[in-house]
């Protein structure tokens, strides 16, 4: 307790940093749930593929050594584009192959759920077996380092050195931390405005609230569903870039734990609710840090789920309720 109070600023800020990544990934879960009332279990792998896009594109560009955040800005901007394209693309593939036919044929939800879980394994193992897959395709020679040792940790080729920039309480916030929190907030704001103010956004909300009535207005539900996956993928791509700036390493199995946390964040905030995803992500990041501080780091996962259960006992639809659907978005 004393520790928590003494280090409140630091635990809060570093918690917000991780929470920002949770929140951005949580958006993908919440958007798809809002529109289809289905949980996209493959979304964790959409994120994971984004982290690899960051590694690969920087390797391709020959980035190396260490750099300040500002010094690597050019690289990171390109990496961001690559990650967004990769995650967006993978999300569209998931929609096309794991969802579209089943949704169109009105398959029972549990069948679609299993399909998504299957897609998740497939995406993760494709990454984890990419040397063998490249071998089958006769590309191993060409792809070399991009596919070798696929089950080992892959690190960002350029190492980013955080620098302290801002004193908050007794903590010097690092530039990378500031970047991550601010980027996540900006993305959330942009998305929120997109969903509220644009015609595309209105269509997404209409399909979420009443798909049949939306069809009567002329909404093309296939396009809306595709767009929803794409937006979730784009957000996961941003999350992947920020994650790589912070952590600097990834693996074919990093999606699972992060995905479970992000999904928890989405449920905590009220699944289907965009602002809930943000709130849930940030609260979860902070709560894990506080609990790790007070009880020990081995308690962090327990904390996440105890918190979830407590919140759902009091507010069964999450902190902000289900909102892309019934209430105001």
């Amino acid at each position: 307790m004393e520790f928590l109070i003494g280090n409140f600023a630091e635990l809060t800020i570093t918690g917000l940093v991780l929470g920002s990544v949770y929140a951005l990934v949580a958006l993908g879960y919440t958007l798809v749930y809002g529109v289809l009332q289905l949980i996209n279990f493959a979304h964790s792998e959409v994120f994971m593929w984004g982290t690899y896009a960051v590694v690969w594109v920087l390797t391709l560009l020959g980035a190396s050594g260490t750099s300040s955040l500002a010094g690597a800005a050019g690289y990171l901007a390109i990496a961001l584009v690559a990650a967004v394209l990769m995650s967006g693309g993978v999300a569209l593939i998931v929609e096309r192959f794991a969802y579209r036919r089943l949704v169109r044929q009105n398959a029972p939800k549990y069948i679609i759920l299993i399909s998504a879980i299957g897609a998740s394994f497939v995406l993760s193992e494709i990454m984890g077996l990419r040397d063998k897959i490249a071998g089958f395709l006769g590309l191993q020679g060409v792809l070399g380092d991009y596919v070798n040792n696929p089950r080992n940790t892959s690190t960002l080729p350029v190492e980013i050195k955080p620098e302290p920039v801002l004193q908050i309480g007794n903590y010097m916030v690092r530039d990378t931390e500031l970047l991550i929190i601010i980027s996540a907030l900006i993305m959330m704001f942009v998305l929120d405005q997109f969903i509220r103010r644009t015609s595309f956004g209105r269509q997404i909300r209409a399909v979420a609230q009443d798909p049949e009535a939306a069809s009567l207005m002329g909404a093309n539900s296939t396009n809306v569903v595709r767009l929803t996956f794409l937006i979730g993928g784009v957000m996961a791509g941003v999350a992947a870039t920020l994650y790589m700036i912070k952590v600097g390493a990834t693996g074919f199995n990093v999606g699972f734990v992060l995905g479970v946390k992000a999904f928890t964040a989405a449920v905590l905030g009220g699944i289907g609710n965009l602002r809930g995803a943000l709130l849930g992500g940030l609260i979860l990041g902070i709560a894990e840090n506080y609990a790790s501080g007070i009880l020990g780091s081995e308690w962090r996962d327990v904390t996440a789920f105890v918190l979830l259960v407590l919140v759902l006992l009091v507010r069964p639809s999450g902190l902000l309720g289900e909102s892309l659907g019934r209430a105001r978005a």
Binding site: N7, L11, T14, L18, A249, V257, Y290, S297, R300
Partner: peptide, 21 residues
């Protein structure tokens, strides 16, 4: 001292804070 869960996270902020504190 602190105990982290192998493979369950890649973020060790709380542990880092404990060490620096």
């Amino acid at each position: 001292s602190d105990s982290v869960e192998k493979g369950s996270t890649t973020d060790f902020s709380a542990t880092v804070t404990k060490v620096t504190a």
